[in-house]
Amino acid sequence: MNGFNGGLLSALALTVGLGGVATAEPDDDSLTINGEIAIVTEAAAPAHLEYVDTVYSGWRFRSDETQAVQMDDFDNPGMLGVELGIEQWSAVDGSEGESCASCHGDVEDMAGVKAVYPKWNEGAGEVRTIEMQINDCRKTRMGAEEWKYNGGEMTNTVALLASVSRGLPVNVAIDGPAQSTWEKGKEIYYTRYGQLELSCANCHEDNYGNMIRADHLSQGQINGFPTYRLKNTKLNTVHDRFRGCIRDTRAHTFSVASPEFIALELYVTSRGNGLSVEGPSVRN
């Protein structure tokens, strides 16, 4: 649990150094999508969080212009991925003549599913991300090829499943059989990787609200994934974001779909328990 005390120490030094200037705050805006889906962007931190009282969606740290793009589905380019996901939902593929819809019915019936992933799968004896579950359905039930973990078809389908859960609270289980995976993710979160020796916590726990060069640091929550980024004009996956942040510490990153990133995804998701599912969100 590297960097625990360090986080605290430097946070203290920081307050002193800045002469108590209170910059570490998100803005006060509130988010309702399409004038009807109320999104909880601020919540009491889940009990397992030791150093944070309140959790905030990354939306609260973005500029008014970026925020606005997510407030209406006609403006949100991430919804184009959702549209493609809808087509795939009922498209028959593979040797069994099945589509997602043949087992799961209307996609609206999947409301609430995204909110509890990653999740322990009893039969497989492992924590599964929603991508892993989707690929398991494709392989074992449809007799279809697995999709590339962070490829377009997969990400559009994850965006679709997120979109029908919007407004519902993130609520992943961290106890029972999921606990050891969660602990592993927590350890990764607090490890100072790379030649810059920075942990996720250094930036997203000790310094959220502060500027790091031109970036306004958020809490690095993943309730809004997949995320449409104005910077690369596409839907971005959780694991690609993790990879980017670790790369920026001059570190050798873990790979997409690795056990490390699955564990980290469970842990980071649990830091946002109580926030609304918000994907596909819009960020810069």
Binding site: N2, G3, N5, G6, G7, L9, S10, A13, T191, R192, Y193, G194, Q195, L196, E197, L198, N202, D206, N207, R247, T249, R250, A251, H252, T253
Partner: peptide
Amino acid sequence: FPETMMPSFYKTDGYIRPGNA
């Protein structure tokens, strides 16, 4: 400043998973 977030600019060892830039 023990454990500070500031990177060590003249150091070459002791890193966890150091990367190629």
